[in-house]
């Protein structure tokens, strides 16, 4: 099984530790993982803002980089969802769309990790990112009447010493939304503050989630409100102490 690691642009530039933790975790689990150099962005920010055509080029480039792997794994739900759901309409004969998995899905559904992972003796509140919930199915959407599940929670519970909680309104949007945060700054900031307050109300020391863009929004909101709560990507917690 050959796994290509996709580290989206903003993770590369702003959250390199999330990339390193992904690599560490996958290697720890015995996965043959390769990081192809020369990858940049999947094209989602432009497309969501209304400039899908600018994503086509990047989609082709992505297909070239990752087309020959068995799986393409990324620590980012919204980039993964974009590749999976939008690439088939952007480029012909797209192979990567079906191979693209968020790292939570890969660990939970493909590797079916059951063994002990790292150690993280803290109370942690799960941030269920919209695209993880409603595009990739990482957890049961609160809107739907289907059996309840949460793949992030399943994985976190393999971490020693952890106390996992979820906030009130467990999958309401944090208000980031890429270019939304620029165009609708007032609403975006309000949503971020509301969301981080609900996380803080659980008494958690950390918020964790499958997407660093939501976590960036939440950290900025915590600072704005002066809340003492930190954000860590779920892979950082799973890999902690390994």
């Amino acid at each position: 099984m050959k796994v290509g690691l996709f580290i989206p642009c903003y993770v590369d530039a702003l959250f390199p530790e999330v990339g390193m933790a992904s690599l560490k975790l996958l290697r720890h689990l015995g996965v043959e993982v390769v990081y192809p150099q020369g990858q940049t962005c999947c094209g989602q920010p432009m497309a969501n803002g209304g400039f899908e055509k600018q994503a086509t080029h990047l989609a082709r480039k992505f297909e070239d980089k990752f087309g020959n792997f068995d799986y393409v794994v990324a620590p980012s739900v919204s980039c993964t969802a974009f590749v999976r759901h939008n690439y088939p309409s952007l480029i012909k004969d797209c192979k990567v769309a079906d191979k693209a998995l968020d790292i939570v899905e890969f660990l939970h559904d493909v590797l079916k990790v059951k063994g002990p992972l790292g150690r993280f003796p803290h109370r942690v509140s799960i941030h269920n990112s919209c695209h993880g919930v409603r595009e990739l199915g990482l957890s049961s959407p609160s809107e739907q009447n289907i059996p309840k599940f949460n793949k992030i929670r399943d994985l976190l519970q393999l971490v020693e010493g952890i106390d996992v909680v979820e906030p009130e309104r467990p999958d309401e949007c944090c208000g980031f939304g890429g270019l939304f945060a620029m165009e609708e700054k007032a609403v975006s900031q309000r949503m971020g503050c509301d969301k981080i307050s609900r996380h803080a109300a659980t008494g958690a020391e950390y918020v964790t989630g499958p997407d660093s863009s939501c976590l960036m929004q939440l950290s900025a909101s915590a600072e704005r409100l002066g809340l003492d709560i930190k954000c860590k990507h779920v892979v950082e917690i799973l890999a902690s102490g390994l």
Partner: peptide, 24 residues
């Protein structure tokens, strides 16, 4: 990256993952 998006802690230069991994 617009400044409003970034929490204070991120406003410091850091080495991107694609360079870290090369060194690694």
């Amino acid at each position: 990256v617009p400044r409003d998006w970034m929490p204070f802690g991120l406003r410091f230069p850091r080495k991107p993952f694609h360079k870290l991994v090369k060194e690694d």
